[in-house]
Design a protein around this nucleic acid. Structure first.
Lengths: 181, 181
DNA sequence: CCATTTTAGTTTCGTTTGAAACTGTTGCAA
DNA sequence: TTGCAACAGTTTCAAACGAAACTAAAATGG
């Protein structure tokens, strides 16, 4: 099956007199497809562990990176989970409330708090990891071995490129307000 | 480069006495990777049209499906954009405020409102589509022709499977509360 | 040293979201 | 017909979010 490149020249099917502009079909538009897929997957998984353990995605991510028993600072967690520090801060305070995490002020640098999972959280980790991996397998079961390798490659390449484009400063001369029609 | 299947048996690197459970590295975990990638892409793109036209993602999606000049109901928009009806309802009311959309009560069924883009919105469509397609191309430029075809296939397969798993009723006997650990 | 800047993390504020309740309309059935 | 279930869309309310302001503790450097 060829990729069916979207036609750049066909006008929208309506007979309106609009200029002959490239059509865009949401269902073939990569950002849309990624968004829908990621949403479906995350949502399904989140419901699984919300139901079972009462934790949210940010909390799960923190458990995931600390699950080895390591200790690290909030900033380091933020980096490793790709969440921003506000999100991490909030998740941590929830986890303190539910006794999932332990915070001790750093000795040498009292700005950095050292965070460690409690045994309760480690127990959750032990249960949740197999669940998560099982779900991941169920999804990737839709693919052949080759395709899984392809997926790995593609996601890496796309992420690298997306990061690069995100870092690029916004094209100048684009403002919303003074759009004098 | 082989896909480097995650080791199922190696214990976490820490020397703690935890049971020997499968490790999970977030950076190799599909739901996480999808979520981060989709987020990066959507965010970058959203900033682009937020800056240029002052519209949000839901609004952009509505413009995208109505861009051909067609008329449809809110429910149909919801289906086609994979947004839920609340989101659609809110986006529409914003678009009514900014004169991007036109709503007329259906004649035969007064529950269904017929929605059409205004010329102002069609003008935005004409400008935004090339921007969106350009961005998409910039991202997919990271891939070879073959890889683009692969991506198309993979996303379709994964979405189909994810939908299937999402529809499946939650596994019974999983409750958060009575975790008498 | 003291003043300034940088870093780590938290708080605040306004917005966005999602689930559930609600309003109005139509279709169906006694 | 009226009475009730199903449907289309909106509103409400509480939780979640992001940006920016803020606090506190190091690092820098005159």
């Amino acid at each position: 099956m060829p990729p069916a490149r979207r036609s750049r020249t066909a006008s929208p099917s309506s007979a309106s007199g609009q200029t002959d502009l490239p059509a865009l079909h949401l269902t073939r538009f990569l950002p849309y497809r990624l968004s829908v897929l990621a949403n479906t997957v995350s949502h399904t998984l989140a419901k699984l562990y919300e139901k079972r353990f009462g934790i949210t995605i940010p909390e799960w991510r923190i458990i995931a990176v600390l699950g080895g028993g390591e200790t690290m600072s909030a900033g380091e967690i933020a980096q490793r989970t790709a969440m921003d520090k506000v999100q991490v801060s909030r998740a941590i305070s929830r986890m303190l409330d539910s006794a999932l995490i332990l915070r001790e002020s750093g000795d040498t640098d009292r700005r950095k708090a050292l965070l460690t999972l409690t045994p309760k959280a480690l127990a959750i980790y032990a249960e949740i990891v197999p669940m998560a991996l099982t779900y991941e397998e169920e999804v990737t079961d839709a693919l052949s071995i080759d395709e899984r390798a392809q997926l790995d490659t593609l996601l890496s390449k796309l992420q690298a490129r997306a990061d690069q484009l995100a870092a690029r400063p916004a094209p100048a001369g684009a403002q919303a307000e003074p759009a004098g029609e």
